[in-house]
């Protein structure tokens, strides 16, 4: 629900429109029973809980995480087991729920359902790990640059600029080309190597805003040390935009992995990945669209779920709403 203050355009009115939420009628009064301490994080969580988008994406993502962790729960078929004699490009049997032939077979005679299930792990792993790495590196460098400023900021910002100048996909392709066997961790490293810059920029600017706040000055006036100021005052107030960017970017990294794998530069056999399957399927797409459709659909669904979650989180954390 939009807050009044958000919508007010003329500044004088912002304060004027609504009294602060908890203004009691007297300075000294026991708090009304309905009123509980409400942290800003608590408010954001309250906000999230009231968004259907959050719930849809969360259910989807939990399901995907379970699939990635325990693919055996969903299918007992070995995704690498091909039977060219019986199943060469077998058509999907949509009535056969959770059966090996549910989504049909590919041109190696392997169960597409089993491959989609087992491919989840690689995609989720790449997405989550790249995001974690990128948030750590970018967040740390951005925080240092933003908080200390001066030459530290100049150096870090120039490095960010240089990395930003490299085209993301082209750059990762060049890096990946240097490896012959491309396992999951190689792809993660390559994506993280070029992906951290946007997080660094976002974190830097939110840290700069936060460090200028009066409460930081107040802490300095009390004699608080740099560590305390950074971790107690600056970080909690600067972390929201970073979280939002990271959640939305997660979907992007998953699709980047699929793109690279499709181009033959990402994961390679024997790793199972939607990107590889999409690439394989595209060769026979005219007569057997199902070979492409199911891995591609799964990929879109996953990316969509992450982006939707990111949107919901952003709306909940948007400081302008408060």
């Amino acid at each position: 629900m939009p807050d009044v203050t958000k919508a007010q355009t003329t500044d004088a009115a912002t304060v004027d429109a609504v009294a602060p939420p908890a203004a009691d009628t007297a300075g000294k009064q026991s708090p009304p029973k309905t009123e509980k301490p409400r942290s800003l994080w608590g408010d954001a969580w309250y906000d999230l809980r009231h968004r259907p988008m959050f719930w849809i994406s969360s259910v989807l993502l939990v399901l995907l995480l379970v699939i990635a962790a325990f693919p055996g729960m969903f299918t007992s078929v070995d995704p690498r087991d091909g039977d060219l004699v019986h199943h060469y490009l077998g058509k999907p049997e949509l009535g056969h729920l959770f059966q090996p032939d549910w989504f049909g077979y590919d041109q190696q005679g392997r169960s597409i359902y089993a491959r989609v299930i087992h491919g989840t792990r690689a995609s989720i792993l790449v997405g989550v790990c790249v995001t974690a790495a990128v948030t750590l590196i970018g967040g740390l460098l951005g925080m240092l640059a933003g908080y200390f400023g001066g030459w530290i900021d100049s150096v870090i910002s120039r490095i960010v600029d240089i990395f930003f100048g490299l085209p993301f996909l082209l750059g990762t392709m060049v890096v990946l080309n240097a490896f012959t066997e491309r396992k999951v961790y190689v792809v993660i490293l390559a994506l993280a190597f070029l992906g951290w810059t946007s997080i660094a920029r976002v974190t830097r600017s939110s840290v700069i805003t936060a460090k200028q706040a009066d409460y930081v000055t107040a802490a300095r006036a009390l004699g608080a040390g740099t560590t305390r100021i950074l971790f107690r005052h600056v970080m909690p107030n600067a972390v929201a935009p970073t979280i939002v960017v990271a959640t939305i970017a997660l979907g992007g990294y998953i699709s980047a992995e699929a793109t690279l794998s499709f181009l033959g530069l990402g994961l390679s056999d024997p790793t199972i990945s939607w990107g590889i399957d999409i690439s394989e399927g595209s060769k026979v797409i005219r007569d057997n669209p199902h070979t492409l459709l199911f891995p591609a659909g799964m990929l879109s669904l996953t990316v969509f779920a992450f982006i939707m979650l990111g949107d919901a989180v952003r709306d909940a954390l948007d400081p302008k709403l408060r």
Partner: peptide
């Protein structure tokens, strides 16, 4: 004072109230 509605009245006259939430 703030919250007395003095500015909101003026915004209503000017027709620059945000509706909704107003």
């Amino acid at each position: 004072e703030s919250g007395s509605g003095k500015s909101v009245t003026a915004q209503a006259i000017m027709g620059i109230l945000d509706m909704p939430p107003g």
